[in-house]
Structures are given as C-alpha cells and as structure tokens.
C-alpha cells in the first residue's frame, strides 16, 4: 500500500469548505492533528477515504480534501467496511462520536471491531449529543444532568476501551483533543496498524458539555490526572515523575516512587500482549483514584477480515475450474436440445 512515497504538507489535506464547528470546539484541534498525521503518512492522497455518520464530528469529511462519504446516523462502520472490502488498497477512516458509534451504531461498531476490518475509527467522545443540542449519550456519567435527564441519568455509561476489547478489539488508543502532538502520533499509529484501530478522543463540547474533560486537560492538573503510556516503558506519571502503577493482587495500584519503591517495581507497558486483562484495566482507569490512560493501550497483530477475503478468493481461484461466467452457466447438469 505504501510503495509510492509522496511528500505532502498539512495544507494539502484541507478542503475549500468553510469549517462550521462552534468556535472553541475540540473538533478543530482534532482536524489539525489528523491533517498533520495524513501528511506525515506519505500515502498518496487519493488513497484516503473518510467515512462518517451523523453528529458534529461527522461533518469531518467535508473539511478534508480526500475522498469522503458523509453517511447516515450510526452506519459509518458498515459503510467503511464495504469500502475497505471492495478495495483493500484504500486507507479507510471512520469519523464518529459517542452517540453515533455507541448508541445508534453500536451494533455495526462492535461487529466491525470483532471482524478486524482494517479501518481507523476515530471516536470523538464528549459525553453528550451536540448536534441535537444537549441530550445525554451512552458515555455520559451516571447522574449527568442534560436536557433529557433533568434529574440526572440513571444508567451506567459504556467505557469505550472496555467495549472495544470485549468485542475482540486488537487496537485501542486514547488521546485528548487539545494535545495535538500526542494525537498526531496516535492517529499515525492507528493508520499503520493492520486491523480495526479505535482511537477514543476525549473531546470538549464548548456549548453543551463544556469542561467535561477539564481535569485531564488543564495545565495545572493534567500531569497528575493522566498517564501517557509508551511501549516498553515503565508506567510512570506525575508532575515530578514520581508516581507509578503496579499490580496489587488482581488490581492496579498507584504508588509513589521512593521509600524503597524504585522504577523496577513499576509495571512496564506492553501494548502487544494478546491477553486483554491488563489493557482492560488500563482502559478503565478513571480519575480520581487513577490517572486516565492516554496513548496506545492495545496494539495486537491478527489477521484482518479484508486480507482474509482476498486470500480466500486467491486460493479458490487457483483450484476452481470455473474461470468466468460462461463456465459457470455450463457447469453441473445440462442437456442439449436438438
């Protein structure tokens, strides 16, 4: 796929359309990071296809100069699946939100993940319905007060990462809209991973859920409230790099370095481990109590659906006597009328 190396600047991926997200919306930063990632991937521009559903984030394809398909609510995973199976040479992205992917599109989402179609799903999670103006979503925390839950929701939210891993997901990463540097890296890794890559972007809705991720983004608190996981490195975080994660029985525990606890006692991140146990625990860490995990949490290689289709076709074509439709029409039981 990447044989032809092409040099691009981020501007090459901007379309001529006026960006219509609200001023201050986290989506602007996501767009900037994805455009940077695309330019850095050095893949011919015509090979990118961006597929979206419905919601604020799903306007995304209009703002890129690649091939784009703005679909219908919840169905982007299915459309993207069809695009990738039809032409596995394309680099297919799905742009979606917590309502689009977790509620109306939940079924398509889990099955795309289970099949391991080689698409990159960027899931903007602002824990609210923005485009329909402020109703709660499947990721809103229990008790969230919104237009449709004036007394607080009475339901548990999905944990995106846990759902992905439960659906046999092989790649899960998390980033924050405002951290363009980390995001660019994560998007690139998602694009290069073969199989379904899900990136949860913690994104701020400035109008209907402003500050929902504030603790994780504020300069003063973010080093304490988040941990950026890096492959092969100890899970250390904190302003002074003095906190780490270790196993305490079957649970993770935050420990302070010093007083006999050294770097050697701290867990080392291995996103390539097939066993999903540790990845699930990391994906489920919530503040307070734990830092929220950012970066690539899980990245396991496995056969993809689309390449399995290709190789099955190649195998059968080699052994079948039917080479074209004329052969097929004449196959089996026939007779000649004279």
């Amino acid at each position: 796929m990447n044989e032809e190396i092409v040099e691009y600047s981020p501007n090459d991926f901007k379309s001529d359309q006026e960006v219509r997200w609200c001023p201050g919306c986290g989506d602007h930063a996501v767009l900037a990071a994805i455009i940077r990632a695309l330019a850095e991937l050095k893949i011919p521009k015509e090979k990118f296809a961006f597929i979206s559903g419905i919601g604020c984030s799903s306007r995304f394809p209009y703002y890129l100069s690649t091939y784009g398909f703005h679909g219908i609510h919840g169905r982007a995973s299915a459309i993207a699946t069809g695009v990738k199976i039809a032409n596995h040479d394309l680099n297919v992205w799905q742009i979606t939100g917590d309502g689009d992917a977790m509620a109306i599109g939940g079924n398509h989402f889990i099955h795309a993940v289970r099949r391991n179609i080689d698409i990159n799903i960027i899931l903007f999670n602002n824990q609210i319905y923005g485009l329909t103006k402020g109703q709660y979503s499947p990721t809103s925390f229990r008790g969230a007060i919104t237009k449709t839950s004036p007394f607080g929701t009475v339901e548990e939210p999905f944990s995106v990462g846990e759902l992905v891993i439960g659906a046999k997901g092989k790649f899960f990463a998390r980033t924050i809209d405002s951290n363009v540097h980390l995001s660019t890296e994560v998007y690139k890794q998602a694009a290069l991973h073969e199989g379904t890559s899900v990136v949860e972007v913690l994104q701020n809705c400035v109008i209907f859920n402003d500050g929902v991720h504030k603790e994780l983004t504020d300069r003063e608190t973010r080093d304490e409230t988040t941990i950026v996981l890096k492959q092969g490195e100890p899970m250390i975080f904190g302003k002074n790099g003095d906190k780490g994660l270790k196993l305490d029985g079957l649970k993770l525990k935050v420990v302070k370095l010093g007083n006999g606890i050294t770097e050697k006692d701290i867990l080392v991140h291995d996103c390539e481990e097939n066993n999903p146990g540790m990845h699930t625990m990391l994906a489920n860490m919530r503040y307070p109590g734990y830092p929220v995990a950012l970066g690539v949490i899980r990245c396991v290689s496995a056969p993809t659906y689309d390449m399995s289709v290709e190789s099955q076709i190649a195998k059968i074509q080699k052994i079948s006597k039917i080479k074209n439709v004329a052969d097929l029409l004449k196959s089996g039981s026939t007779w000649e009328a004279k």
Binding site: A49, I72, I79, G82, V83, I85, N107, H108
Partner: peptide, 24 residues
C-alpha cells in the same frame, strides 16, 4: 469468480456495506 460476499450483522449493515462498496 472473485465475489466479495459479506454476511452482515443486520439488514441495515447489508445495504450500508453495499453502498460503501459501490462508493469504492
């Protein structure tokens, strides 16, 4: 004959994958 047959998770995914394939 190179057919790409996809047994979808539901009727909606059936047509949406087909539409994606048509786009492609």
């Amino acid at each position: 004959l190179g057919v790409k047959s996809f047994q979808a998770e539901d009727e909606i995914a059936g047509i949406c994958t087909a539409l994606g394939a048509s786009f492609a």
